[in-house]
Simulated scan of single mutants.
Amino acid sequence: MTPAAAAKLEALVAAELAAPAEPGAAMLAARQLTEEILARHGSGVEAVLFYGACRLNNDPAGLLDLYVLSSGHRAFHRRWLPALFNALLPPTVLHWRSNGLAGPVRAKVAVLTLRQFERRLRPASLDTTIWARFCQPSTLVHARDPAAWHRVEQAVAQALTTAALWAVRLGPPAATPVEYWRGLLARTYGAELRVERGNRSERLLAASPGWYGPALILALARLGLATAVDAEGRLRPGRGGDFTLSWAIRRVCGKTLNVMRLVKAAFTFDGGPDYLVSKIARHTGVTIELTGWQRRHPVLAAPILLWRLRRDGAVR
C-alpha cells in the first residue's frame, strides 16, 4: 500500500461524502431525520451516512436509508437488552418516521458502532453486506467532530479497497472497470437475500459513471496492483490465486446473517412485515397478502413466507 495512492483514494472519498452545495429534497429529508436522531440520542452518535435508492433518485417520499455509527451500544440504546442484541448481531434496524415540510418522511435506520463498521469493511470479514453497501456512493450527513469525520472517510476508503480486491480476486485476469464492478456486484447480491431485479447492478453503475471507474483504479493502486489500461480499456491487475472457496464461505455466512437480521428486525422494525412485502412487490412484482396472524407473529411466519418467496423467485 503506497501513501500517495491511499491519499488520492481518500480525497476521492471525501469529495463524494461531502454534502452537496444545493441539496435535493431527499438530502433535506435525510438532514431533518438526522437532526431528530441527534436530538434523541445526542452523544451516542458519532456519524450518520445517507445512501441507497432514495439518495440516488432524490426521492424523499420513499424509505430513506441511513446508517448511524454510534460511540457505543449503551450510549445509543440506553437499555441493556437492545444494546446486547446490537453487540451480538449488528446492525440493529429501526423504522424512523417524521412529519416533514413536504409531508411524511420515513427511514430505515441501521445502527452499529463506528468500531464495528470499521471492522466489517476489511477483506477478511465474513460479512460482505457493509463493504458492499459503502463501496457505492454515499453522503456523510453528520460527524460529531473532525476526528469522527476522518475515521468515516478512512473507513469508506477501506470499503472500496476491499471491494476492489475481491473484484479482481473473483474476476478474470483482464477486464474493464465496469466488467469488474458488474461481476462483483452480482456476487455480493448473491451473498444476500435480495429482492431486486437482476438489472440492479447495471442501474447502479449507470447512475454514477464518474464514481466506479476512478474508485476502482485508485483502490487497486492503494493495494499496489497494476492499474495500466490497455488499448481496449482493460485492466490487468495481476492478482493470482483461487478464491472460490473463500467466497463460497462468505456467501453462506452472508445469507445466514441476512436471515438472522430479518428475525431480529421483527422486534426492532415497526411494521417490518408490511415493509418487506411492499418492497418485494415494488422490486419484483410478486404480491403477498399477509394475514393478521403473520403480522402479529412475524418470526413464526418467516419460514413459510421465505419458502413462498423462493418458490416464486422473489428472493435468491
Results as ranks from 00 to 15, higher is better:
202 E>G: 03
193 L>V: 12
272 G>N: 06
247 W>K: 05
7 A>D: 09
24 G>D: 11
170 L>P: 11
168 V>I: 03
139 T>K: 10
57 N>V: 00
4 A>W: 09
112 L>A: 05
250 R>W: 00
293 W>S: 11
129 T>V: 05
272 G>S: 10
275 Y>T: 09
81 L>N: 06
85 F>T: 14
220 L>G: 04
134 F>W: 03
284 T>M: 08
109 V>T: 08
132 A>S: 15
65 D>L: 08
150 H>R: 15
84 L>M: 09
312 D>R: 14
172 P>A: 15
28 L>W: 05
100 G>A: 06
182 R>G: 10
99 N>Q: 14
64 L>N: 01
160 L>D: 06
111 V>S: 02
50 F>D: 01
170 L>I: 01
275 Y>N: 07
301 A>G: 13
309 L>F: 07
276 L>F: 11
79 R>I: 00
113 T>I: 00
282 R>H: 14
84 L>W: 08
212 Y>A: 11
86 N>Y: 04
233 G>L: 05
291 T>N: 07
12 L>M: 04
6 A>S: 15
287 T>C: 00
221 A>M: 08
8 K>T: 13
94 L>N: 10
122 R>E: 13
16 E>D: 15
196 E>D: 08
30 A>Q: 04
202 E>S: 15
167 A>S: 10
125 S>E: 10
200 R>I: 06
80 W>Y: 02
118 E>N: 01
41 H>M: 03
308 R>I: 01
250 R>T: 04
150 H>E: 13
304 I>L: 13
148 A>F: 10
60 P>N: 04
117 F>N: 06
232 E>S: 15
72 G>P: 02
40 R>W: 01
278 S>R: 14
251 R>Y: 00
130 I>A: 02
64 L>K: 03
2 T>R: 08
109 V>Q: 06
98 S>F: 09
246 S>V: 00
74 R>H: 04
42 G>Y: 00
213 G>S: 13
101 L>W: 11
122 R>M: 13
145 D>F: 11
228 A>G: 11
295 R>L: 07
138 S>L: 01
42 G>I: 07
184 L>G: 13
250 R>S: 09
217 I>T: 10
210 G>K: 15
61 A>K: 15
20 P>V: 03
227 T>Y: 11
121 L>M: 15
242 D>V: 00
230 D>R: 07
19 A>W: 04
259 V>W: 00
152 V>S: 03
61 A>T: 11
214 P>E: 09
55 R>K: 13
305 L>D: 10
76 F>R: 07
159 A>I: 08
165 L>W: 08
216 L>Y: 12
190 G>P: 12
198 G>M: 07
